[in-house]
Amino acid sequence: MKTIQPEELQAKLDAGETVHMIDVREADEVAAGKIPGAQHLPLGLVEFKHQDLDKTEEYVIICRSGGRSGKACAFLESQGFDVTNMSGGMLEWQGEVEL
């Protein structure tokens, strides 16, 4: 499984790169703040909503600490998606958040 450090993701965003991000935390966690531009798709819905995602895109998967996003990555990889897990999750994120 590919991983990216929060600082690496921040550098990509700061450089103006288009990064497709999926936050798999629960709604109450996301309400406390998410990375601007991240799409919210709770882990429990990934199996049912993955067909709405574009297999030609690369996605960075985000959760609180990296565990749930790892599970989402494993599932999405098995379905043919190009995904990267953000190590450390939002606990390690030092960048901007949106409510």
Rank of each mutant, 00 (worst) to 15 (best):
M1C: 03
M1V: 05
K2M: 11
Q5H: 15
Q5P: 07
P6F: 13
L9Q: 06
Q10K: 15
Q10S: 12
A11P: 07
L13Y: 05
E17D: 14
T18F: 13
T18Y: 14
H20N: 14
H20M: 09
M21T: 09
M21P: 10
I22R: 07
D23W: 07
D23F: 03
R25A: 01
R25Q: 00
E26K: 02
V30M: 05
A31D: 13
A32Y: 02
A32W: 09
A32H: 12
A32V: 01
G33I: 08
K34S: 10
P36M: 10
P36R: 04
G37Y: 07
A38E: 01
Q39L: 14
H40Q: 10
H40P: 11
L41W: 05
P42D: 10
P42F: 01
G44Y: 07
V46Q: 07
E47M: 13
F48V: 09
F48Q: 12
Q51F: 15
D52C: 13
D52H: 10
L53I: 10
K55G: 02
E57P: 08
E57C: 13
E57L: 15
E57R: 15
Y59T: 01
Y59F: 14
V60W: 07
I61G: 00
I62G: 12
I62P: 03
R64T: 08
R64L: 09
R64F: 04
S65E: 06
S65C: 07
G67I: 06
G67H: 01
G67N: 08
R68D: 00
R68Q: 10
S69R: 01
S69W: 03
G70P: 01
K71N: 11
A72H: 03
C73F: 04
C73T: 09
F75V: 02
F75Q: 00
F75G: 02
L76T: 00
L76Q: 00
E77L: 09
S78G: 14
F81Q: 07
F81D: 07
T84M: 11
M86W: 09
M86L: 04
M86Y: 02
M86I: 14
S87G: 05
G88S: 10
M90A: 11
L91S: 11
W93A: 04
Q94L: 15
Q94R: 15
G95K: 05
G95L: 03
G95P: 10
E98S: 14
